[in-house]
Each structure stands twice: as C-alpha cells, then as structure tokens.
Amino acid sequence: MRQNPSFAMTDVAELRRLIDQNPWATLVSHTPEGLVASHYAVLLDEDRDDLTIVGHVGKPDDMIHGLGERELLIVVQGPHGYISPGWYGDVQSVPTWNFVSAHLSGVPEVLTPEENLAVLDRLVARFEARMPEPRMMWERPNDPAFVQRLERGTVGFRLTPAKILAKRKLSQNKDTEVVETVITHLQADGPYANPALAAEMRRAHDAMARA
C-alpha cells in the first residue's frame, strides 16, 4: 500500500478502534513456495494498550505460514466504497474509492496452549455475546474434552507489529462543501449507499477541523 502523507493514519487510538471494529483480517506470508494468504478473526491484546494483536490459525496453516519463524503481514480493512464523480458537481473529475486500511507486520510469537485457549474463549465471547441466547465456549453441551480437542487443532499467536502502515483516504483533499455532498450521497438510498463509510468520513473531517 503506497502511503500519502495527506492520508496517513497514525493515531494509535484510531488504529485500535479500526482493528476492534473490523476483526476479520487477512494474514499474508512470504514462503519458499511463494505468497500465501489466510483469513481469520483477530483481537487486540487485552493486556496491552498498543497495537499488539492476538489470534489463531487452524492447522496446518501454522506450518504453511511458518508461524513464529518468518514475518507475517496482517491487513485490516475498514469501511470502503465507491465515490462517483457526479457527486463532485459540474467539474472535471473521475471516480475514486474511499477506504480505511492498516497493514501491521512482524514476526509473531506462538502462544502456549493455555494462552491459545484464552484467546479462543475471548473470540467466542466477543461475537456470541450479541446472540439472544449466547452459547459460550465452555458452556454445555460443550464439555472440557471437546474444548481441549478444539484447541489442539489450532495455533494461537501474538503479533506486536514492527512496522505499521495505515491509510485513511476519505476525501481529505476536497473542499468542505464537496465532502458534505459526498457524505450526503453515501447516507442516502442508492446503489452506493454506505452509511459506515459516511460515518468514517465525518469522523476524519471533524478531527481535521478540530486540529
């Protein structure tokens, strides 16, 4: 991802929010056989206040990625969507795509089985808690033996990124009037309605105004 200083996203709190709200990530490794990519849910490490990420992969993805032995790139994708040139008014323009994305890379630490179980428990609790009748990992009809077998089929990891590249391209290079028009179109009914992207644009431009 090519960086542009105007679109750089460096605030740790905002990056933590991005990861927390968009946990479905892409994991990429460069192996002797070439590039490999997998997709898993990740979480921020609850014991840290930085951008350390915890997660797991199913076996044999740990061996395919060389988990713990080589660099791992984690790509987190936030709200994104098409921006029509018609929304800019009667001026020369072309379409674009607004987005928020972060690349975090480093050599991950492989978790112990006990640590991995804790991460799996957190993952289940994070998403299952929204259900009307949540089924947590250790609750019946699951028994401890079943959960232990589940853990043995996975490998947990913790990644404290050595390199972070994050970009928030949300029409920061446009006039306020144009930005407001784009937000209005994203909030309205239509083929490219995208309230989540509109909210990210509002958040970014409000921050710019405060600065």
Rank of each mutant, 00 (worst) to 15 (best):
P108D: 01
L111D: 08
L111V: 10
T112W: 08
P113A: 04
P113Y: 02
L117N: 11
L117P: 12
V119G: 03
L120N: 09
L120E: 12
L120C: 05
A125P: 05
R130W: 05
M131F: 04
P132C: 03
P134G: 00
R135Y: 00
R135F: 11
R135C: 06
M136V: 11
M136Y: 15
M137S: 11
W138R: 15
E139S: 15
N142Q: 14
P144Y: 11
P144E: 13
Q148I: 07
Q148P: 05
R149Q: 12
L150P: 03
R152G: 10
V155R: 13
G156F: 01
F157S: 02
T160A: 15
P161C: 01
A162S: 13
A162K: 10
K163Y: 04
L165A: 13
L165Y: 00
A166I: 10
A166L: 07
A166Q: 01
R168W: 14
R168V: 00
K169D: 06
L170Y: 00
L170S: 05
K174N: 12
T176H: 11
T176C: 04
V178M: 13
V179D: 02
E180F: 06
I183P: 13
Q187A: 09
A188R: 04
A188N: 12
A188G: 11
G190V: 11
G190I: 11
Y192Q: 14
Y192M: 12
